[in-house]
Design a protein around this nucleic acid. Structure first.
Lengths: 139, 139
DNA sequence: TTTTATTTATTAGCCTGCTAATGATAAATT
DNA sequence: AATTTATCATTAGCAGGCTAATAAATAAAA
């Protein structure tokens, strides 16, 4: 078993390198990468409960909770008690949280170009298809 | 710019999911994932300096330093001063560090099967090629 | 030779992930 | 109705990453 010659090994290496790029992209928009992913989810549907965010993001509730701490602290979102269930809270975007979207999307475009820069168009499409399939399998 | 429809977004999602699987694989061999990657490097060449490990692994020196702390503490490796340069240290495998290899390789094989289980042989090969190219570009 | 610059390891502190454990609330069972 | 079980948010604590800052030693330059 040659560990280094596996897809798993490649994925691990790519993860670290790409995560650094992602962090830079988010930083250029005034965010951290984790905050960016939560915002993407809130842009799709505002006012979600933390547990639903965690489920949709594929993250643990404590992780989401921690990320939300940063978003609240930096005024990208607010937390309100859920009327129908006192255990839950709902997360709402602030104006700042809504307006950072354009900025992040621009930075994400640059990130994508950086990521795929060395591949041909055909390779990029193929990679996208394969990763989509891989993600479905991993979940 | 639809962030969710990018390779970068897919990579981020896959990273989290796959990292959890990797951690489990390492755990089954009595390791943490970071320790596994350092050991892979030491199995190729024993007695390396920390800075060289960091360079080859594509990690920052503090990260390697922290991971080594766990490896030393758990008796997988030892740290010795470098005779020719008092700034450096050399990391050597212990017997335990050498013997855990077979175990990790077995677990890694299972990890790889889990990772690629949903893909055909052709897709797996294609993915391996594309990821190899991607990694080279990202570094 | 003396000074300056570079390199190496390390520490501190942060973000992203996780699991385990708590407390509060809601739901289900008896 | 009372008890038990499940759910949700949160805290604590850990590993894997990072940058910035420090101390010590080497290398380079004056």
């Amino acid at each position: 078993m040659d560990i280094e010659n596996t897809v798993s090994f490649l994925l691990a290496k790519i993860s670290v390198a790409h995560r650094n790029l992602t962090e830079n992209a988010a930083k250029a928009a005034g965010l951290h990468s984790g905050q960016a992913f939560v915002l993407v989810e809130l842009w799709k549907e505002d006012g979600q409960r933390q547990i639903d965010l965690a489920l949709k993001l594929g993250l643990s509730p404590p992780t989401v909770n921690k990320i939300l701490g940063g978003l609240l602290e930096n005024d990208f979102a607010t937390r309100e008690r859920y009327e129908d269930d006192a255990r839950s809270t709902r997360i709402f975007l602030t104006r700042k949280g809504r307006e950072v979207r354009a900025d992040l999307e621009e930075q994400w475009k640059l990130l994508e170009e950086r990521t795929l820069g060395g591949l041909t168009e055909t390779e990029a499409i193929l990679l996208h298809q394969l990763l989509t399939k891989l993600l479905v399998d991993l979940i």
